[in-house]
Design a binder for these strands. Sequence first.
DNA 1: GTTGGCAAGATTGTCAGATAATCTTGCCGT
DNA 2: ACGGCAAGATTATCTGACAATCTTGCCAAC
Lengths: 227, 227
Amino acid sequence: MGFMQTLRRPKIRDQASEQIKQYIVEHHLGPGDRLPTESQLAETFGISRPSVREATKALEFLGIVESKTGVGLTVGRLDLSRVTEHLGFHAGLLDADPLQLIESRVIVETGVLPRVAKQMAADPAIEPRLRQLVDQFRAARDLKTWIALDIQFHRSLLEASGLQPLVAFGDLLHVFFQRFRESVKRAEWKQGIESHQQIVDHLAAQRVDAAVAELRAHIESHQERIR
Amino acid sequence: MGFMQTLRRPKIRDQASEQIKQYIVEHHLGPGDRLPTESQLAETFGISRPSVREATKALEFLGIVESKTGVGLTVGRLDLSRVTEHLGFHAGLLDADPLQLIESRVIVETGVLPRVAKQMAADPAIEPRLRQLVDQFRAARDLKTWIALDIQFHRSLLEASGLQPLVAFGDLLHVFFQRFRESVKRAEWKQGIESHQQIVDHLAAQRVDAAVAELRAHIESHQERIR
DNA sequence: GTTGGCAAGATTGTCAGATAATCTTGCCGT
DNA sequence: ACGGCAAGATTATCTGACAATCTTGCCAAC
């Protein structure tokens, strides 16, 4: 019978990572502040250094602490991109509904366009950058560079909004979209190039609604490919 | 002279974690599937087992892999709550521009409302759920439960859209947003309650534009508090 | 006196090997 | 057929050592 217990003894390294977090809070440490050395932590917690390391390396992976050879451990600074970097990988495993991912992209990327239009009017450096990417598209000859440029275009669009959280979210999704970008056919390039061109044109002329419509159609064109 | 290099050799365990992720992708492994043993991984990568462990423990921390004593390593199941739990333990470490967070939330949450209105028309269960949350607001007496309910309300809004990726992203934004909520004053509750009420009313009546305007004003009201 | 480099110490990075704890599997007796 | 026990497999933890890297301070040269 298996009803009893499953009362697993908590793992030492997990206790250690909790204690380290607790240490940070109790000592009111902020980003950049120093932590005790691994040896000191090991002695304090009454465990071995390898266990402490497994704890700190896990925390470091998330960005909660940083470690430098010859220096020591310091408290880290957490930003969204750091987190999504690893989570994006997860979105690939998690068999999310492709239709939901497409719709999510549409909402985020079109939602950002009004801001982009404003930023373009204020910062003359943005438009040339986008046009340069469109031109590189036309010169692209193989699928691989086309994909890379497509990713960069959409990323630049998000970057132009100045909203880093949304850039991070875009990066997260792009891992997933890579999968069916590969199934793009040559004939569909041309259409993609024209879409990008028109989006930039619309934005430069402050025709936000037209840009939104074009971008929505562009992203939703993936829908036909996923069946 | 310091101009040369700063070309840090990539750390072995980081290479290892990358290789493990790569292994999962290349072998098309999904949650629950087995990975090679630590010893096998160590031998395959040509490194020691402790280094493999530091890599796997970091991945396990995020839920990318799971390990059970006597069993082995398996691919993990996405558990965002675990991540947000680790992130939220100390607000002082979170680094994000408040204005960008606010604007990002506005874009995501308002962008979702057209879909929510559609879903409400199709699924009669949604409206009572939202109204119930509004009612609980009115009954709330302390700041803590108010914050919890506020988070839940906005989350339910995203859930009602049926777009899981945006729900997950919303959770992440809330973690970074948390510290600003604590500075809400009692007088501002009332206003928040009324906002929520009106948003639900507008949506129920299919007045999407009005709901968008109200939600935007509601979120942007935080701007005045962060100076 | 100032500057430059070098040496020593401190700290993390990596490794090897061993033992304990825990889970699975299959055998054996009833 | 069923239940328990033993053996194997695998992760969990520890000890100890050495390598790589950064910081600090001393010392010599100018």
